[in-house]
């Protein structure tokens, strides 16, 4: 059984946020109005998180694309009183939106703040509702939502593979964020398969997990920025 995981190479990431918008269009995440956004009620399953250090002119900034990390030991699922969230055998931290009662225990339990509450009825003014993806539900007001690793894409990829009578191949199933990345900084695949690209990258010395010390065991693995190692001539 596969164990789905993602690798994000911070050296290649340009912080363009295409992944953020790709996620939003794929998963019917509504754009909240400016006044609500100002109160911190924007919904974004994937955000680019800046971490700024230093003073002018010695400033540095790490920009971290942060989806749900799909922890192997997720703190959010333990606190759900109604079993609306859980972890699938393939390692996806799922959220059954229809079952959620909106108590928001999980939003508080997630150390990465990757769970978002629908404070308002989703609005798609004018023709914007025409662009909704029929594969994904529109979550009603009062429900917590989160990244599903574009689970509907897995379902479809699996069906396609089954119909073609072949096993699911690497690259058949990619979440929307990974697929769109213009700098190909995001990788996705089966961490269990030692030959997969993600497994190979996860073994890299640059690999780290975000806030690993919390014991959450995330399945989104980052590759640190690395450095330029000098010119050809100098190395010679």
């Amino acid at each position: 059984m596969p164990r789905w995981g993602m690798v994000i190479d911070l050296a290649k990431c340009t912080a363009c946020q295409a992944c953020v918008v790709a996620c939003q269009t794929e998963n019917n995440v509504p754009c909240v109005e400016p006044e609500q956004a100002a109160r911190g009620r924007r919904i974004s399953w994937l955000t680019v998180l800046p971490e700024l250090h230093g003073d002018y002119p010695r400033v540095s900034m790490r920009l971290l694309p942060l989806p749900c990390l799909h922890c192997d030991s997720p703190p959010c699922i333990r606190v759900c009183p109604v079993g609306a969230t859980g972890i699938t055998p393939e390692g996806v931290v799922r959220q059954t939106f229809a079952r959620c009662i909106g108590c928001r225990y999980c939003t508080n339990a997630c150390p990465y703040t990757r769970r978002m509450f629908n404070w308002y009825r989703p609005e798609f003014p004018g023709g914007l509702s025409l662009a909704l993806n029929p594969d994904v539900s529109v979550r009603p007001k009062g429900v917590v939502e989160k990244c599903t690793l574009c689970h509907h894409r897995l379902m479809q990829a699996r069906e396609r593979a089954q119909a073609e009578e072949r096993p699911l191949a690497e690259g058949d199933y990619l979440p929307a964020c990974v697929e769109i990345c213009p700098a190909t900084a995001m990788y996705f695949g089966d961490l269990e398969d030692p030959d997969s690209k993600v497994a190979e990258l996860a073994r890299s010395p640059r690999a780290f997990r975000y806030l690993e010390e919390l014991g959450t065991e995330p399945k989104v693995i980052y590759l640190s920025e690395g450095e330029w190692t000098g010119s050809e001539e100098e190395r010679r």
Partner: peptide, 29 residues
């Protein structure tokens, strides 16, 4: 319902920036 990059296109090879993705909101604005 969704804009993605054309993987064969020599300029972007399947990738896209957030502006391109927002084309749907231009269409249905």
């Amino acid at each position: 319902v969704k804009i993605q990059g054309n993987p064969l296109h020599p300029v972007n090879r399947g990738g896209l920036c957030p502006r391109g993705l927002a084309g749907l909101q231009v269409l249905y604005h």
